[in-house]
C-alpha cells in the first residue's frame, strides 16, 4: 500500500495554472475563453480522479465482500 502524494501536487498545479490562465484571459477581455479554460481544467482533474475513485470503490467492494 503506497500513497500517491504526487496526485495532490498534480491537482494543485493544474488548479494554479488554470487560475493564472483564467486571470490572464479575463483581464485581456476574453471571458469566454477563460470560462472554457476553467472547464477544461476541471475535466482534466476529473479524468485523473475518476479512475482513482473507481479503484477506491473496487477496494471497498473487495474488502467488505459485496
Amino acid at each position: 500500500m503506497n500513497m500517491d502524494i504526487d496526485l495532490i501536487f498534480k491537482i494543485a498545479a493544474i488548479g494554479i495554472i488554470v487560475s493564472i490562465l483564467n486571470q490572464v484571459l479575463a483581464r485581456s477581455g476574453r471571458d469566454e475563453q477563460a470560462t472554457m479554460t476553467s472547464l477544461a481544467g476541471l475535466v482534466v482533474v476529473l479524468m485523473i480522479l475518476a479512475q482513482k475513485i473507481a479503484d477506491l470503490f473496487d477496494l471497498v467492494k473487495t474488502l467488505f465482500e459485496f
Partner: peptide, 22 residues
C-alpha cells in the same frame, strides 16, 4: 480562484486517506 478544482482536490485526498483506512 478555482473552487471546483479545490473541491476535487478534497475528493482526491479523501480517496487516498480512505484507502489508507481500508
Amino acid at each position: 480562484q478555482e473552487k471546483d478544482i479545490s473541491m476535487l482536490l478534497a475528493v482526491a485526498v479523501c480517496g487516498m486517506v480512505g484507502s489508507v483506512v481500508i
